[in-house]
Each structure stands twice: as structure tokens, then as C-alpha cells.
Amino acid sequence: MNRLIKSSILLWASIFISLVSAEITIYEFDDPELELRFNNLSQELRCPKCQNNNLADSDAPLAVDLKDIVYEKMNQGQSDEQIVGFLKERYGDFITYRPPVKPSTWLIWFGPFVLLLGGFVIILRFVSNRKESTIVKAEVAETSSADLISQWAEEAESEVDSIRDSENQKN
């Protein structure tokens, strides 16, 4: 009995899930490769109405229309470039999340690498400066301590000499 209830719940749940998923996947493909291309493209294209959504995630009427167009054109055998070109003619570079490389987008394409390179240069210069300065300091210290020792030795000797002289004079 218990098993019967469990299995009927499972059955109803699976029917419900299949109904829900049927509502979401409207686009059917015979060719799995086409389906993959469609999924990739609709994730890379941006919905002009709901600006931070891609077409795949958006249910806005315009996004649905644009997905229909992508689906149609793909089944007509058009390439991804042709389809993106068609949409760019109407909605501009905005339509894609992958901006083209041109002077006005150089900053976003190359800026991070320039900053990274700049950081490396600054670190390299910092490290080499530090090495040089420690070496110089060490040399200065060595010579001065050697000098000091010999100086002290001379002073000590002359002091010993003077003490001996004074003792000799007393005697």
C-alpha cells in the first residue's frame, strides 16, 4: 500500500515536471549540433529590453521574438556570424556580450593586460632597487668597521705606549 502511494506521488511529480519543462523548451532541433549552437548563441546575445539578461534567460516579448529569429535563421542554414550581423544592424554592438575589437573598445580589451604588465614592471623595479641598496649598505659597513678596528688598535697601542713611558719616568 505504502509502495503504491509512493509510486503514484513519483508518477504525478514526473508528469508535473515534464509539463513545466515542456513550457520552457519551445525550440526543438533535429540536429544536436544546431541545438548546441542555438544554446551558445542565445546565451551570448543580450536582450535589448532587459539589459542584464541574455536572450536565453529572458522571457521578455522582444527576447522571445529575437530567439525566434535566431531559430528561424539557424534552420535556414545561416552561420552564427550572419545571424549576429543581422541583429547588430538593428541593435548595434549592444546586442552581443562579446564586443568587437576596435579603437573605442581597446580599453576594455587590453586595459587589464596593460595594468598587469605595469604592475610587473613596478614590482621588478622595486625588488632590484632593494637589492642594490642593501649591497651598498653592507659594503659601507664592512669598510668602516675594518677602519674602526685598525683605528682602535692604533689608539690602544699609543695609549699603552704612553702609560709605559709615564711608568718609566716614575721609576
Binding site: P48, P61, L62, D65, I69, R90, Y91
Partner: peptide, 11 residues
């Protein structure tokens, strides 16, 4: 909405 899309209408 296809004419709208041809004209780049988004709302």
C-alpha cells in the same frame, strides 16, 4: 513585431 525589429525598436 518584425517591422519593429527591423527598425531596432526595443520598447
Amino acid at each position: 513585431g518584425r517591422l519593429g525589429i527591423d527598425m531596432g525598436v526595443y520598447g
